[in-house]
């Protein structure tokens, strides 16, 4: 186990290093941030001065070296625009995104698993067909469209939920959370539903496929022959055996949503990381983008590691090597 952890840690470091190189190179080839900083009528001398201040007059390898060494010292650079540490900017907005994503994922699981199990156990029934058709819609309808429709219906037309912002927040250990206030809840409902639909549909379909596969296994019939209830047979014997691919997709989707909830956040003016990323890209705010992408890579690597650990908890035949 310890050996595995060590190996995994080295892998993670390697991945993050590769990501840092790619991110750095990508940033160097896309646009010159100097022109975002200097006035439009700046002289050549002023431009050169700004370039020096931003550390952009060095050669690429030297720039990368400086970038990497400061990264390792915990200095992630300052935003060109906000003149604040890039990391602080991102971490300020992270709770809003994580909160939104967790609510969305919880919603996706709560709906998708029972429906998926039902559809897998009764593939012929009419209700299953309705569920599967619905899931197809969930996959194919774009998030921005669903978001706008929800705003139109629930915010504009019926006025049940607010259309933008986080609402009242409560600060806990320096982290501002919406889900602890009623007002916050009303604000989170629409964006969370919008964000969850695609994931819900994918998890539902994978759960169903897994359950259909497991349903043919002898041990399911043996469990019934023991006198177990239908619910026990499906959930305790069946679902657990269908769960490995579900957990895999869950992990990928979780990372994906945290990293790129951008569109939903933009539609609902949710003050999360995604909106910061978009703004930073518009402004060629290189340090923020770089730190953002590095953070996303870290999140993915950590989630994947956790997914592997969960595999092991689910299936005793899987050993971490």
């Amino acid at each position: 186990m310890l050996g595995y952890l060590l190996k995994r840690l080295i892998q993670m470091t390697l991945v993050l290093w590769v990501v840092s190189v790619i991110v750095f190179l990508m940033m160097s080839f896309t646009g010159d941030p100097v022109f975002m900083v200097v006035p439009i009528d700046a002289s050549d001398a002023e431009i050169a001065q700004a370039r020096r201040l931003l550390g952009l007059d060095d050669s690429l390898p030297v720039q990368y070296w400086k970038f990497l060494t400061s990264l390792l010292q915990g200095d992630f650079g300052r935003s060109y625009v906000f003149r604040q540490p890039a990391m602080t900017l991102i971490l300020e907005r992270m709770p809003a995104t994580v909160e939104l994503v967790l609510v969305a994922m919880a919603l996706a699981i709560a709906v998708a698993i029972p429906l998926g199990v039902y559809a897998g156990a009764n593939p012929q029934s009419r209700i299953s067909r309705v569920i599967m058709a619905g899931s197809l819609l969930g996959i194919s309808l774009p998030g921005f469209w669903i978001g706008m429709v929800l705003i139109y219906l629930f915010a504009v037309h019926w006025g049940i939920f607010p259309s933008s912002g986080r609402g009242d927040t409560v600060e806990i250990f320096g982290i501002r959370l919406s889900i602890l206030t009623w007002d916050g809840w009303t604000h989170i409902v629409l964006p969370a539903v919008t964000l969850s639909l695609a994931t819900m549909a994918i998890i539902l379909r994978i759960t169903r496929a897994g359950m259909m596969e497991v349903g043919r296994q002898d041990f399911m019939k043996f469990a019934r022959a023991k006198g177990a209830t239908r619910g026990d047979v499906l959930y305790k014997h069946g679902l657990k055996n269908a769960l490995i691919p579900v957990v895999t997709i869950f992990g990928l989707q979780l990372g994906d949503l945290i990293a790129f909830a951008t569109i939903t956040e933009t539609i609902f003016s949710w003050p999360g990381m995604g909106k910061l990323l978009i703004d930073s890209i518009y402004r060629a705010d290189r340090p923020v983008i770089v730190v953002y992408l590095m953070l996303v890579a870290l999140i993915f690597v950590v989630i994947n590691f956790l997914v592997d650990v969960i595999y092991m908890l689910i299936d005793p035949r899987i050993r971490l090597k």
Binding site: K221, N241, D315, P316
Partner: peptide
Amino acid sequence: FQDPMTSLNPLH
């Protein structure tokens, strides 16, 4: 059942 390799739940 016939096949003991498949009649027990592998995860319990």
